[in-house]
Design a protein around this nucleic acid. Structure first.
Lengths: 199, 199, 199, 199
DNA sequence: CATGAATGAGCTTTCATTCAT
DNA sequence: CATGAATGAAAGCTCATTCAT
C-alpha cells in the first residue's frame, strides 16, 4: 500500500535538474523562468516545489551536479600515463559532450557567484577539492622527476586549471579559432611549464 | 532656444554608463534594475530613455566601453621593452584598478553573450581585435629573437589571453588563493611558453 | 472485510478538529493551510478529505465545536447559588483553560462571519441560544429577588455577554492590563448592574 | 516644470486606503487581494507599490487610520455635559457612519493582531492612548463627585470601553436585537457602574 | 482506509517602458 | 531637457483540491 519510493523521487529530481540545465543553458540562470523549466520538465509549478524549495535551490543543485561531473574527468586523467595529453583531451571531450550553449552556463555560475554566496561556496569548495587532487597528482610527478620540482604544486595546479578553463572560454568567445591549433599550443604551454629545467 | 550641445550629451551618456557599470558589477546584468541605475546616475527613468532606447542598449554600450578600456592597457604594453613582465603587470594593474566585484562583470558579459547575439558580437569583435594586436606584438618579439619563433603568433596570443582570463576566473572561484603566488606562477608559465628553445 | 466503525470515524474527526483548532489558533483561519493541519493531525491530505469535504467545512465544524464547548460552561453556572460570582469565575476559567492564542480564534470567527454566511449563522444561532438560556437564568434570579426585576432579562443578558466578550478583546489589545484588576472591575460592573435597587 | 506635489500624493494615498478599506470590509484582511484593491482604487498593481511597499503596509496604514478616526469620537464626548449619554450615542453614531460590513474589520484587525506583531502594536498603542484619555476624564468626574471614587480610573475605563466594544460586536452577531433596548440597558449598566455609592 | 504525487489557478511583487506635464 | 506617475506583463511561489495506487 505504502508506496514511498525514494528511488523514483530521486530519479524525478534528476530529470528536473536536467530539464533545468537545458533551460538555463538556453536563457541563462536569471533568464530561465520557473514556468519554462516546468514546461521543459513536463511538470506543474506546484509540483516542482515538492522537489526543490526555491529557484535558487534548483540553481544550487544544478551547479553542484555540474561540478561533480567535472570531477569525473579528473579521475580519468589520474589513471592515465600521459598526463598532459589527457588534460588537453579533457577539454575536447567536455566540448563534445554538451551543446555549445551549455558552456555559457559556467560563466553564468561565475557571474552568479558574485552576488550569491551559496553559489560562490559551491564553486569554491569544488575548486579547492579539484585543485587539491590535481596538486597531489603533480607532486607525484615531481617525485618521479617528470615535473619541475621548483614549482609549488598547489599554485601550479591552479594556474593550469585556469589556463584550461580559459581556453574553453576563448573557444566560445571566438568560435572560428582553430580547435586543433589551440589544443596543440595549450599542450606546448603545459609541457614547457611543467618540464624540469634542462641540466 | 534649446541649445543642444552634443558634447554635453555625450558626457552625460558616459556618466550614465559608469553608473550602470557600478550597478551591474554590484548586482549583475539581470539583477540591476533600471530604477537602480537611475538612482545611481541621479537621473529620472523617463530621461534615461533619452540617452538609451532600452536596457539592452545600456548593456551593449557598457560592454563596448569596458572592452575599449581593455584595449588601452594593451597599448601601454606595446610600448614596453620587457614583454613578459609588462604582460603580467597588466593583469595586476587591471586587478588593482577595479574592485573585485567588477571582475564578475566579465563573466556576466560572457554569460549574456550566450543568449544575446549582439553582446556576443561585441565580445567576438573585441576578442579578435585584441588578439590580432597582441599577435602582432608577439611577432615583433619573434623577429627580435626574444620569443620562440616556432609558435604560431595568433594561437599563442589566444592561449595566453586565455590563461590570463582563466586566472581571473580562478580568483573568483577561490578568493583565498595567494594573489602573489598566482602571479608568480603565471609569469613562469608565460615565460617558459614564450622563451625560445635554448641552444 | 472493511468494518466501518462509525465510532472510530467520529473520534478521528474530533482529533482532526482539535488539530485544526491548534493550527487556526496559531496562524489564523486563513493563515493555516490544509497541509499544516494534516501535519498536525498526522494524516495525509488525501485522507483528510474523507472526513471533511473542504477547508470551509473544517472551519464550520470547528466553529460549532468551539461554540458547543462554551455552552458547557453555562450549564455549570446554572447550577450555582451565587450567580454573579459564578459568572465572573466562568470568565476566569475560560481564560485559564485555553492559551491566549486561542482567544484570537473567536475574533477570527467573527471576522469570517462577515463574509461567510454559514459561519455567520453558526455564531448567530449559538449566540441566541446562549443568550436565551442566560436570560432564563436571570429571570429566575429576578423571581428570587436577587436580580433587579426592572431589567429586561433578554437585553440584560445580551449586554452582560457583550461586556464579557469585550473584556476578552481588551486583553488582546493591551496584554499588559492587569488581569486581576480587570476581573475585579468586571465583577463590580456586573454586580451593580444586576443588584436590585436598595429600598 | 518640477511637479513634485506631495499634497496630491498624500491625497491619492488616502483614496487608495479608502478603496482598500472597502475591499477589506467586504472580503477580509486576507481575503481581499491586491488586484481587487487595484480595481477598486482604479490603479495598476505596479503603481500601487509606489504608495505602499507591501500589502501588510496597506493593512497597517488602514488600521491606523481607522483607529485615529475612533479618537475623534472621544474628543466629542469629552466636551459633553452628559458623559454617559454621549458615550452611548457614540456607539450609535459609529454604527450609522459605516456600512455593517465595515464593523467586521475590527474583528479582522483583532484576529490579525494575533499573528502580526505590527498590527498588534498599532492596536495596543491606540488602545492605551484612548484609555488614558478616557481615564483622565473619569478622574475629573471622581473629583467632581459624579463618579464613584473607589473605582480605579484606568481599569474602569478599560472595562467600560470593553463593554461598549462588546455591544457593537453583539449587534453584529445578532442583528435582530433591539437597538434601542441595548442602548438603554448599556446606559443603565454604565450609570450604575459609575454612580457613587448612596449614603 | 490511506498515501502523497500532481494540478493549476491565483497570490504578492517587480520591472522595463511610456506618457502627460 | 527633465520629471515621476502610471502601466501591465510576467516573475516566483502557495495552496486547496483531486487522483492513481
Amino acid at each position: 500500500m505504502r508506496t514511498i519510493d525514494p528511488r523514483k523521487h530521486e530519479e524525478r529530481r534528476r530529470e528536473i535538474l536536467q530539464a533545468a540545465r537545458r533551460c538555463f543553458a538556453r536563457d541563462g540562470l536569471r533568464g530561465a523562468s520557473i514556468s519554462e523549466i516546468c514546461a521543459e520538465a513536463k511538470i506543474s509549478p506546484g509540483h516542482l516545489y515538492h522537489y526543490f524549495e526555491s529557484k535558487e535551490a534548483i540553481v544550487a543543485a544544478m551547479t553542484e551536479a555540474t561540478m561533480a561531473e567535472a570531477d569525473t574527468h579528473l579521475d580519468l586523467m589520474a589513471q592515465s600515463d600521459d598526463p598532459i595529453g589527457t588534460l588537453v583531451a579533457k577539454i575536447e571531450s567536455t566540448r563534445a559532450k554538451h551543446s555549445d550553449a551549455a558552456h555559457f552556463l559556467v560563466f553564468d555560475m561565475l557571474a552568479e557567484a558574485g552576488h550569491n554566496p551559496s553559489i560562490a561556496k559551491i564553486l569554491r569548495d569544488h575548486s579547492q577539492a579539484l585543485r587539491s587532487r590535481f596538486a597531489g597528482y603533480l607532486r607525484a610527478g615531481q617525485q618521479g622527476g617528470k615535473i619541475d620540482p621548483s614549482l609549488d604544486a598547489d599554485l601550479a595546479a591552479a594556474v593550469l586549471m585556469s589556463a584550461v578553463e580559459g581556453v574553453k572560454a576563448m573557444r566560445i568567445r571566438d568560435p572560428k579559432l582553430s580547435k586543433a591549433g589551440l589544443g596543440e599550443h595549450l599542450t606546448i604551454l603545459i609541457g614547457r611549464f611543467l618540464t624540469p629545467a634542462q641540466k
